[in-house]
Design a protein around this nucleic acid. Sequence first.
DNA 1: GTTGGGAGAATTTTT
DNA 2: TTCTCCCAAC
Length: 649
Amino acid sequence: MLDYENLLNNEQFDAVTAEDGPLLVLAAAGTGKTRTLTYRVAYLVEHGVPAENLLLLTFTNRAAKEMLERANSLTGNAISSLWGGTFHHVCNRMLRKAADRIGFQRDFVILDRDDSCKLIEQCINSITRNKKDFPKKNVIASMIGMAANRGCGIESVVEGQLDSLKVDPSEIVAVARMYAERKNELGMMDFDDLLINGLKLLKEHQFVREFYQEKFRHVLVDEYQDTNRMQAEMVDILAARNRSVMAVGDDFQCIYSWRGANFANIMDFPTRWPDCRIIKLERNYRSAPEILDVANASIRGNAEQFRRYPKELRAVRNSRRKPSFYLLYDGEEQGIAVSGLIRRYLEDGYQPKDVAVLYRAHFHVVGLEFHLRNIGVPYVVTSGVGVFELAHVKDVISFLRMCEFQTDYLSFNRLLGLLSGVGEKTIEKLWAKLGGKFDVTSTQDRETLLGLLRPAAREQWQHIDRLMGTYHLPSGDTISGPDVLDRFLEVFYRGYMARSFDNPEDREDDLRELANQLRKSASVREFLQEVSLLTNVDQEAMGIDGDKNNAVHLSTVHQAKGLEWPVVIIIWAVEGMFPSSRSMAENDDDTEERRLFYVAVTRARDDLVLCAPSMRYTRDGGAFQCKPSRFIKELPKGLLSERYGFRRY
DNA sequence: GTTGGGAGAATTTTT
DNA sequence: TTCTCCCAAC
């Protein structure tokens, strides 16, 4: 039995050992939120709750993995049967068992962002007459997503953005409808559908609902402040029977409201669960007091919110030195300053992996990479595109999908499109002639397809076709996933990469990693059903890029959430970039940006550096002044040590 | 119908 | 600077 009393502080101990019943843990940054959750899991398991009766919901795969690993080692590997993961993951898992109840196949395909954009584009093309003025597919996609996550109709989203759009709103509504219909016909779900349909399943099917209500004696939710309406509702339903729900979160760190996250959920939790206990964690073990002073002062700028659940980060660590603020001439000087600072930190004994550079948006980092390369510091950028969204990875996955599942138009489309001389129209015709299906196990389908292709394409497809034939052997055996992937490379894809990409070797490395992942998972099928839920944030955790372990981290603030580094450098802390003028234009409200700043600041353990160049250049050669961020200006005097220009540090 | 080249536009945050 | 779209040539 773990010695909880000595391993935890008083508040953490209260939360971990709380009796059954609703519990809201307000855990400010760096106060041991993960620790509390993992010990809670361990505590419950040690006190006789079977792990399969626990549900642990997280916001990212990374958080899930981290917590499960830690809880697992605390309990001596006793939690393998625990359900844990993102909301999307858990919905996926429930739907794989029961999707047929709501009109889907259990092996439905998940559309990732790219897939759904393509589908939306098709809808746009078939509905709208003048494509010129019509919003781009990405815009429509985010409108549809917004509607889904807010739980409102597409109409009201369109209405809200009407002045910036120059088109007939009814056309947008029509596109959204058509997209929904197309998805239905294809039997596919996008990310939002996983939540929508997971919830639908629970609401409409008493048997399913009661099964899970019974099963999950304890529901634990991480990052509760970032849940949207659907997610909160799902938690409420799942916990309704046993009433043992533990929501952990920090309203100061709600940074996903643009995605439908609604921190009213955390504010109203005590209303929805009137007998809930509230425990506050305020002792911060992470950061030096001078850093916490900045964080505390900054979040007070959100006056209204601050009144509701006032929290003050209280330092446990000893005093160090004040965070510094560099006012720089321009991005160039910032690059020199940042790389110079990093070099000095390395001389002082820090490792590259101890340092992170954070920024508001991906494109803010472009100028900096050059300088880091210059001084020869290893670095990793958590880029915007995930491994599983890369074109070559998706190509190969399409091939695997076609091998494994019978009819999947999307994969068919993607794979056939790789052949030379085959484009969109040809594919449509082929698909129609095949009768709207392609079953890889049917010799007839395979022969028909081969016969329909024009010679050049047939020549290429033959090899793939033969390979598919050996995947499903009459004996019922299949070649292993990694092997079939290898063969695919050999007979077709390596050649394709060589003539289509300028960096085929790099891409082949990605594919080799994909094969490794495949080898680790239980079956090809299972891997394919999960793969679209994996994102770039998880890649390091999964071992891709594993050789870059000791490197400076360049990351957006969003992706840095939940992480910490001894040294954190925030770049482009200027008006218009952080806070971002785009996000401000949408809702005329800087509170979420301020929370984002709070998140950024509280990532730092020892040292925090804020950089604000005074000049920004536009692509057409123009330049304009920018002012340091309001989040710096509004701080009380004396919290930062101010430095001007890089030559003076 | 497909493909590739060239001109033009454009940059938030992500499960 | 990179991505996207459009058009002209196969």
